[in-house]
Computed example of a mutant assay.
Amino acid sequence: MGRKNYLIEGGSGTGKTAVCNELRRRGYHAINGDRELAYQGDPETGEPVGGITGVAVHGHHLWRVDQVRALAADQRDAVTFFCGGSRNLAKFIDLFDGVFVLEVDLETLKQRLDQRPEDEWGGRQTERELIEHLH
């Protein structure tokens, strides 16, 4: 929804949601892609896939490409920030004027994951292990 569109990307626990919330607090148009655009699907075809659980969720975490394209095309706002990560990023990376990749040290990552509830990605031990391995 911006004349300029930016992606805030990074691994799990790097602060994408915190940045999105802060951008919104400051009056910017910011979309939490992990909560507003995401679904579980086949990374090749984009077709929704049901029954994905555990660490397999990571590999099937996609954004709805048609929604991303529609939001990026709407130019009512001067700038829009898309915050989050997806396995199908290659299908819409061309829409962004810039990409910011967030990084965090392992100690801070572990502290952030310690604060996550079990029903949120990274809250279970097997998910934490994958996140730390990918870090």
Rank of each mutant, 00 (worst) to 15 (best):
D34A: 11
E44S: 14
I52A: 12
A30L: 07
G51P: 10
C20A: 12
W63M: 08
V55C: 10
T14E: 04
I52M: 12
G50P: 08
H61E: 08
I31H: 03
D34G: 10
T45M: 13
V57E: 10
L37M: 07
V55R: 09
G59I: 08
G59E: 12
G15A: 05
R35Y: 13
L37Y: 01
E47W: 05
R26K: 10
G50T: 15
V57R: 08
P48L: 12
P48S: 13
G10Y: 02
A38M: 11
P48H: 05
E22F: 02
E47G: 04
W63E: 02
E9N: 15
N32A: 12
T14D: 05
N32S: 12
T17S: 01
L62F: 15
G41V: 10
G41F: 02
G11A: 14
T14Q: 06
G46L: 08
N32K: 04
T14I: 03
T45C: 15
G27A: 03
W63G: 03
T14K: 04
P48K: 03
N21K: 00
Y39F: 10
G15N: 04
I31K: 02
G13A: 03
G15V: 01
N32Q: 15
T45F: 14
H61P: 10
Y39K: 01
R35V: 13
Y28R: 04
H29N: 14
T17G: 04
G46H: 04
V57S: 10
D34P: 04
L37K: 00
W63N: 01
V19C: 05
G15P: 00
G50Q: 14
E44P: 08
T17W: 03
E36R: 07
H29R: 13
L23T: 01
L23S: 00
H58I: 15
A56G: 11
T14R: 01
G59F: 05
G51S: 15
E9G: 06
V55L: 15
A18M: 07
S12I: 04
G50V: 09
E9F: 08
G54A: 13
G50D: 15
G33L: 02
A30H: 02
Y28L: 09
L62T: 06
T45E: 15
H58V: 14
L62N: 06
E22R: 09
H60D: 09
V55Y: 09
K16S: 07
D42F: 03
P48W: 09
L23A: 04
R25T: 12
I52D: 07
V19R: 00
G59S: 10
A30T: 07
G51N: 11
Y28E: 08
H61C: 09
